[in-house]
Write a protein that binds this DNA or RNA. Structure first.
Length: 563
DNA sequence: ACATAGACTTGTATCCACGGTA
DNA sequence: TACCGTGGATACAAGTCTATGT
């Protein structure tokens, strides 16, 4: 059913495309797509760039165990260097990191090494660490010529391996290098931190390309695990990593047709949600009164997802990853209920670790009915029990699918982000200078980032860089006072104003990360339309990479575009 | 209904080149 | 010329969601 619908929506898009074709402009994202689920007809590439082989340390770099010199076998030495390279990092002081590292390291040791090395705390990696620091220092000190040579070599590799041909187009590949071996660094309190991420060999690698293409060849004397020709998927290369046992892929760059089209489709789904969101909201409010606990939980969860832009919250395997949650996996310990708080009633306090162990903290007054439901859900539960014990993402998404074709929990995030940007832009933009307009744009973007909880650690240099900017402003101010000529005054006033806008922007952005929402949540056509309407140069809003990624939108949207 | 594999999107941290400045 | 701050690129981890098998 849904496949047919997808076909139908593509058909609509095709009609739009046809109009473009008729007007004799023909872009690649408007080419006809198949309806049988195949993603391409022809795919040719050179395969991945493998990690360089291990180069043993020079003899003068020593490793000491319990104060005594110990020569390590190459495999054991390699793993030791991974640790040594991270010695300055806080990770290496964590008990879990050291324990996991030590356990995996032992697996690489000879039996003699195993018997000698019995306590990680007696290992002295400092000479190795110093050596790598010196190396990186030497790299910085290289002559212009040497640096240029490296640059040219990188460029050559990029030209050879960084592109593929998919159907009729040469496309940029996203990540064409196989991840090198090293120590796994999870985010947050990860139970597997420090484990050895092993080296990927050609024999681990699956190649995907079309039958009639020139197949990538494995390095001399090796073979690929498999060469397959599956045009129902978009990846070129895959392998299984050993930490979680999950599959990693080499895929195309966001500028590619295949990614751009998917992106476009995502925003079209969010726009369809816009058309029926009132109905859905009325529906879940009704469901708060349902006789069925399951339905009430579903409705309250959906309210959170809609109102707070929470993620769906899939279940995670305990002990395999950091303990983080989303909406459906919230536990009793993650919320607190306050019948009264200051001058507000029915306040819910959220405090939990979300994706990437980023803390979500928020206090929100809710409607009485939601509050009462939450009290009900909490009855007779322990802190570690699920808040929504009758609900998971699969149940929720099945329900959403019935309400609107293609609707899943994450569409709400996209929808709410994009509609917020559009509203905020309307509200904030005034017909002033370009810097003032850009400040408005960034403020609108910021409203979305706050909604989506896209935080960042305040940059270490924040205070200093703020001071520098203030110094510049003060100097400009003095310069202005010292200037008499009318024309010069005007120019300096403009410069001053620009600096002030910049300062405001930077200050407000201290702990906010705009990039993620800009790249993943905001329909780029809203921004394109805004730029056209207010005569702001596109480059002020989107850098080169972003313009490439959003090429489809830049081509498509006019100043009257409505999300 | 449930578990798991697989494919793809979303997310932060880190690296690095570049341009401006002392 | 060395240094420094910054924006953009890169790396890769961590989510979401679908398909498939039992």
């Amino acid at each position: 059913g849904s496949l047919l619908h997808l076909g139908a929506s593509f058909y609509c898009l095709l009609v739009i495309s046809l109009i473009h074709i008729l007007s004799s402009i023909h872009f690649r994202w408007e080419e006809e797509r198949s309806t049988d689920g195949s993603k391409w007809k022809f795919l040719e590439h050179k395969g991945p760039v493998l990690a360089p082989p291990y180069e043993p340390l020079p003899g003068h770099v020593r490793f000491f165990y319990d104060g005594k010199l110990l020569r390590l076998s190459a495999p054991a030495e390699e793993v030791a260097t991974f640790f040594a390279k991270m010695l300055d990092h806080e990770y290496t002081t964590k008990e879990m990191f050291r324990k996991n590292f030590y356990k995996d390291w032992r697996k690489e040791m000879t039996s003699e090494e195993k018997s000698k090395i019995t306590d990680i705390n007696k290992c002295n990696f400092t000479e190795m660490s110093e050596y790598f620091k010196a190396q990186s220092e030497a790299r910085k000190q290289m002559s212009k010529d040497e640096k240029l040579k490296i640059k040219e070599e990188n460029e050559r590799i990029l030209q050879e391996y960084g592109f593929c041909v998919m159907d009729n187009h040469k496309e940029r590949i996203g990540n064409f290098r196989i991840e090198p071996p090293g120590l796994f660094r999870g985010r947050g309190d990860h139970p597997k931190m420090g484990m050895l991420k092993r080296r990927i060999r050609p024999e681990d690698i699956i190649i995907n390309c079309s039958k009639d293409s020139k197949h990538p060849k494995p390095p001399q004397g090796t073979r690929w695990k498999e060469v397959r020709h599956d045009n129902k998927v978009t990846w070129l290369v895959s392998w299984t990593e050993n930490i979680q046992g999950s599959i990693k892929y080499i895929m195309l760059n966001p500028s590619s047709r295949i990614k751009g089209e998917k992106d476009w489709q995502k925003y079209e789904t969010a726009r369809r949600l816009k058309k029926c969101v009132d109905r859905l909201r009325a529906q879940y409010r009704e469901d708060w009164k349902s006789k069925e606990m399951r339905v009430r939980q579903r409705a309250v969860a959906l309210y959170f997802i809609d109102k707070l832009a929470l993620r769906a919250g899939n279940e995670k395997e305990e002990g395999e990853t950091a303990d983080t949650v989303g909406c459906c996996s919230l536990r009793v310990e993650h919320i607190k209920l306050y019948p009264k708080m200051d001058d507000q009633e029915y306040v819910v306090e959220f405090d939990f670790l979300g994706k990437d162990s980023i803390r979500y903290y928020n206090k929100m007054p809710v409607e009485k009915r939601v509050f009462k439901n939450l009290q009900l859900f909490l009855e007779n539960k322990q802190p570690e029990d699920d808040l929504f014990d009758r609900l998971n993402t699969s149940i929720l998404n099945k329900h959403l699918q019935e309400l609107m074709d293609g609707l899943t929990a994450k569409v709400f995030r996209t929808y709410n982000a994009s509609i917020t940007l559009q509203q905020q832009l309307k509200e904030l933009t005034t017909d002033e200078s370009i810097p003032a307009k850009i400040l408005s744009y960034n403020r609108a973007n910021r409203a979305v980032a706050i909604l989506c909880n896209h935080q960042r650690a305040a940059p270490k240099t924040f205070e200093k860089s703020m001071q520098n900017l203030q110094t510049k402003i003060d100097e400009k101010q003095k310069q202005l006072w010292a200037t008499r000529k009318q024309k010069a005054v005007q120019r300096i006033e403009e410069q001053l104003m620009k600096l002030q806008m910049q300062a405001t922007d930077r200050e407000e952005n201290k702990q906010i990360a705009l990039g993620t929402s800009k790249l993943n949540y905001l329909d780029p056509r809203i921004s394109v339309a805004w730029v056209k309407k207010w005569d702001v140069p596109m480059e002020k809003i989107y850098n080169k990479t972003q313009r490439e990624k959003f090429a489809w939108a830049i081509d498509m949207a006019e100043e009257d575009y409505e999300f």
